[in-house]
């Protein structure tokens, strides 16, 4: 409400102010509609993170209609939200891209796409070579979605990238939005899968199922993605690794657990809880990853301690 008072006194022309006083301050006190209070982050140089050079405001989808390629962006957004239904030939798991990229890739610590458009191409430790955005997306198709790569030049690949480009809001290539894709987790913690199992049944199974099978709606579309079994991500996925999964779980799961955060998600489990529950579900049976022997080829970029192979 303070904002309103300030508005009234700073911006209202003198005549109006006089009228305002004359009519009694009641008229002035009347609250006015508020605008969107969007999450805003600093933009920094890739080289020098200490220098702020601007701000980035998470865009709302209603702004897409103003883009010249609105249809393409909307198509990309739909593909990311409903990948399994729209691209059944490429998706093996019962998983959508946004099963892991929370709230359409718009929340920091929830594997956002906010910097993806600018970040690639990049040399990745797991690949041991430069990976561009198309290859990065296909990495998720092959591992997280346990599926098949999408044609690099397909309309679908272009649409997904168009959405990510729109989300980057023209932040220049040598700059980045100052956010983290994944949150911190204490990697020195020793996982206790027995305790993890207890947490799983108390805090996760209501949605992800007593057998980790997830849930589908009456049309067969994914409601809650599976955490293990044939329809889950394969062992080549980042989330098959205990600490990577824990970093995701701690800040994003359970969802609908509180009134803050877009999905009312995360931030209720301790590091130990997240590590325990992640050890429990990540090590449950899941599909193999055929190309696993090619991962982490460079001795200078060794495989992490929680790698599955």
């Amino acid at each position: 409400m303070n904002k309103m008072h300030t508005l009234c006194f700073n911006w209202v022309p003198k005549a109006a102010l006089v009228a305002c006083v004359a009519l009694g301050l009641a008229a002035c006190d009347r609250p006015t509609p508020v605008e969107r209070d969007a999450a805003t982050y600093n933009v920094v140089h890739v080289e020098d993170a200490n220098k702020d050079i601007g701000t980035y405001v998470i865009p709302q989808d209603t702004a897409i209609v103003n883009e010249p390629n609105a249809d393409e962006i909307f198509y990309g957004k739909r593909l990311l939200n409903e990948t399994k239904r729209l691209l059944p030939d490429n998706v093996g798991a019962s998983m959508n891209c946004n099963s892991c990229h929370i709230a359409q890739g718009k929340v920091p610590l929830g594997d956002p796409y906010i910097n993806s458009y600018n970040f690639y191409p990049k040399v990745m430790p797991r690949a041991g070579k430069e990976v561009d955005l198309e290859a990065r997306i296909n990495g998720c198709f092959l591992r997280s979605m346990n599926g098949k790569a999408l044609d690099r030049d397909s309309r679908e690949m272009k649409a997904m990238i168009a959405y990510m480009k729109w989300l980057s809001q023209n932040v220049p290539k040598d700059q980045r939005v100052d956010i983290e894709n994944a949150g911190a987790i204490d990697e020195s913690l020793v996982p206790d899968p027995v305790r993890g199992e207890e947490i799983y049944y108390a805090q996760c199974a209501a949605c992800h199922g007593d057998n980790g099978e997830g849930m589908k709606d009456s049309r067969g579309d994914i409601v809650f993605p599976p955490l293990w079994g044939d329809e889950s991500f394969n062992i080549g996925a980042g989330l098959a690794r205990t600490y990577k999964a824990a970093a995701f779980v701690k800040y994003n799961m359970p969802m609908g657990i509180q009134t803050v955060g877009l999905w009312g998600h995360g931030n209720v489990l301790s590091d130990q809880d997240a590590v325990d529950v992640s050890e429990f579900f990540a090590h449950k049976p899941r599909p193999d990853f055929p190309g696993k022997e090619n991962d982490w080829p460079l001795p200078s970029m060794p495989k992490p301690k929680d790698a599955r192979y």
Partner: peptide, 24 residues
């Protein structure tokens, strides 16, 4: 936003997030 009542009959009580950050 708000939370469902907690009772022993269901495993978890879920919450509806607040959307006060949207414009009026």
């Amino acid at each position: 936003g708000g939370r469902m009542p907690e009772t022993p009959h269901d495993r978890m009580a879920f919450s509806m997030p607040s959307f006060s950050s949207l414009s009026d």
